[in-house]
């Protein structure tokens, strides 16, 4: 199966808003996801600039191209598991 791409925005805004907690995935991947995800960091993707108070929606993470606002470690993993489940069903 193709690896699921997780792109963490590490622009200043996303970083201050807590992107670092998602970076934990760079150190330790939960057992069920080993070999199934690819984590990268990206410079400011400017999602925070899209609308007023955009920084309040950070940190942003792109999962297989789909943007997630207010991302947390748990939310990212939930999304990844949902994608895997859907793929397995197909």
């Amino acid at each position: 199966m193709e690896k699921i791409k997780i792109e963490i925005c590490v622009g200043t805004t996303c970083f201050v808003m807590g992107a670092s907690s998602i970076q934990a995935l760079e150190f330790e991947i939960p057992e069920d996801l080993i070999g199934k995800i690819e984590v990268t960091e990206s410079r400011c993707m400017e999602f925070c600039k899209d609308h007023k108070d955009g920084h309040h929606k950070g940190p942003f993470v792109k999962i297989n191209g789909e943007v997630m606002a207010d991302a947390t470690y748990d939310k990212v993993l939930d999304k990844v598991r949902a994608i895997i489940k859907k793929k397995e069903e197909n």
Partner: peptide, 9 residues
Amino acid sequence: LVAKDIMVA
């Protein structure tokens, strides 16, 4: 920094 929209990198 965020309030002033200064991007460190």
